[in-house]
């Protein structure tokens, strides 16, 4: 008989260990985006007036709605974790569904924002953009890269939450064992926080 080597919780899962793993993963994500924020700050310092002018192209209304959608989704996922902890499975399922809905709203709005710009001929390597000058090229290059990679994270988040929804329905995630959902929540909050920085950098500072 093999003795248990590590002290574990009632469910046999090293709860803290899983959360440490997730936090470390978020550190790597932070540095992944950090590289992009570094590029942004250097190019902004290099081309302040071009960045200033380019930022006026952004649709402030849509950006604000998106910020609102994402912040609300973070609230929903936090509440869904609270619900499952209390053992309220049905409520948690609803809240996870609402989180996904907010994420989808975010992506749909992003789609329209991108389409609007592409219709104007502003996209990487486009003749219009190259004709606008270096600072503008870099601004919109950064815009597409940073919101694009962020959007990819939102998409991945939506898929992961969908899997969690499935797990919750199947009682893999329960009031005793909800570390998967909690880690998903951490990831979702991270995606939210990145947007909280992207929003002022591209929309508000003009």
């Amino acid at each position: 008989m093999i003795e248990p080597l590590q002290a574990k919780g009632e469910s046999g899962i090293d709860y803290t260990g899983k959360k440490i793993g997730m936090w470390i993963f978020l550190f790597t994500e932070l540095l992944f985006f950090g590289g992009m924020f570094l590029l942004y700050s250097i190019f902004r310092a290099q081309y302040p007036s071009e960045f200033h002018i380019s930022a006026r192209e952004e649709n402030l209304v849509l950006g604000t709605i998106n910020t609102f959608a994402l912040l609300t989704s973070s609230l929903f996922i936090a509440l869904s974790i609270a619900a499952i902890r209390r053992g309220n499975k049905k409520q948690s399922l609803w809240l996870q569904g609402l989180t996904i809905l907010c994420g989808i709203i975010f992506l749909v709005i992003k789609y329209f924002e991108w389409s609007e710009k592409i219709a104007k001929g502003i996209y990487p390597d486009s003749p219009v953009l190259l004709g606008m000058g270096s600072g503008e090229t870099l601004f919109f290059g950064l815009y597409y890269m940073m919101t694009g990679i962020h959007g990819l994270h939102v998409l991945i988040g939506i898929l992961v939450i969908a899997v969690m929804l499935h797990f919750t329905r199947q009682d893999t995630i329960t009031s005793q064992n909800y570390v998967k959902l909690e880690n998903t929540g951490l990831y979702w909050h991270f995606v939210d926080i990145v947007w909280i920085y992207l929003f002022p950098l591209f929309y508000l500072i003009t």
């Binding site: 290099q46 990487p124 000058g133 600072g135 090229t137 870099l138 950064l142 597409y144 890269m145």
Partner: peptide, 18 residues
């Protein structure tokens, strides 16, 4: 990779990059 495929010029001096 993106610089090669879609002309993201962050490191390309002809596009303002460095």
């Amino acid at each position: 990779v993106l610089g090669r495929f879609i002309g993201i010029g962050f490191f390309d001096p002809t596009r303002g990059g460095d």
